[in-house]
Design a protein around this nucleic acid. Structure first.
Lengths: 119, 119
DNA sequence: ACATAACGCAACCTCCTGGTTGCATTTAAG
DNA sequence: CTTAAATGCAACCAGGAGGTTGCGTTATGT
């Protein structure tokens, strides 16, 4: 019986950071992700209570977050609990740091160049 | 003039980080942003040369990046130069740091709680 | 002056996304 | 056992995103 679930480990995010950002690039999903960052896993129904949309819509958003590796799901009893997953967040942070550092270095080079010209 | 609707300098991103992430959530746009992080402004045509799409498509992507405040545009002669703009990047980094810190704190609390229970 | 490079605008197209509804299934509760 | 809760699945829909083409306009260069 290979069809238990759709594979939970389909996180093939090798350097494709746009997938992570795209997952966070929706206010509903960002709110969910933000909410889960307190570490407490929550069921779909719980997450749907405050959202002004259908449970199915929330489910779809959770699937997107899960596919991006930002969130983990595990079924307990009749409810499926979604929990914060920090790995991809770290990836995104590291990438943004890298870009910021590249920009800072460029600024430094430009600054020293201008100073050299002005002497 | 209350019409700041699609103003070019529409960086009214007050806490709405999803706009920034959405702008970065496309591989083409992320590539452009990444490329501009070396500080050198580039014209639309220059940016379109390597992209396997039309200049108009690149233009649209640049407008999205500009609307998110990730990039700045200023016309020089007949070409419009797009340049890296670090402010919103810093906002995004700060937000991800905040989420990561919230998660870290939650882990800490959980750890001390479990240790307290185990004694 | 004239050709051309760089760009803007607008119309158009396709496909994916965000969202809904209806119904079936599994699990907990009384 | 029967009922209600929590979820899954599939079909469906409107709108927006990504992309193209055509044409007009403004600078540049020779």
């Amino acid at each position: 019986m290979p069809k238990t679930d759709h594979n939970p480990v389909d996180v093939e995010n090798d350097g494709d950071f746009s997938v992570i950002f795209a997952a966070l690039g929706d206010s509903t999903r960002l709110a969910i992700f933000d909410r889960l960052s307190d570490g407490k896993p929550r069921s779909i129904s719980t997450l749907s209570d405050d959202a002004d949309m259908t449970r199915q819509a929330v489910t779809k958003h959770l699937r997107v977050l899960e596919a991006a590796g930002l969130v983990q799901n595990h079924r307990v009893g009749r409810e499926s609990q979604y929990a914060f997953c920090p790995e991809q967040l770290e990836q995104a942070r590291a990438y943004l740091d890298q870009v910021a550092n590249r920009w800072a270095s460029a600024l430094m080079r430009l600054k020293t160049f201008v100073e050299g010209e002005g002497s």
